[in-house]
């Protein structure tokens, strides 16, 4: 099962840092998401994007996780050569993760 089936996500950017929220649609899926999405698992899935480090914050009352990925934007929005310099697409890439 893909994460996409039980969670939604949004990417934000500040300088060279990307943050991706992952939010359970239903309360009953929260424990599974919370347990499966360790920072290590997310870093592995995101590959090069997460080459530096991934920090995770949890907001259990909202069934939400927030992943902060440093160095994800290769110099930041203003100087990155990437097509999607903001990393706006990254949340959907994370939702491809197989649970």
């Amino acid at each position: 099962m893909k994460l996409h089936e039980i969670a939604h996500a949004r990417t934000g950017d500040k300088g060279d840092v990307s943050n991706i929220s992952v939010i359970a649609y239903r309360a009953e899926d929260w424990p599974r998401i919370h347990d499966a999405l360790t920072p290590e698992r997310v870093a592995r899935h995101m590959g090069d994007v997460a080459a530096e480090d991934v920090t995770r914050y949890a907001l259990p009352q909202l069934h939400a996780l927030n992943f902060v990925i440093r160095g994800a934007l290769k110099g930041g929005v203003t100087r990155s050569l990437a097509l999607d310099a903001h990393g706006k697409c990254l949340a959907s890439v994370l939702l491809e993760l197989e649970l």
Partner: peptide
């Protein structure tokens, strides 16, 4: 919820000029 976490790093320490806002317990 998506917007609450948009461009946020540590939800308990959102650095602002007038305050360090704390969204960690938001309902």
């Amino acid at each position: 919820t998506e917007q609450l976490l948009y461009e946020i790093h540590d939800p308990a320490r959102y650095m602002q000029p007038d305050v360090v806002a704390d969204f960690s317990q938001v309902e």
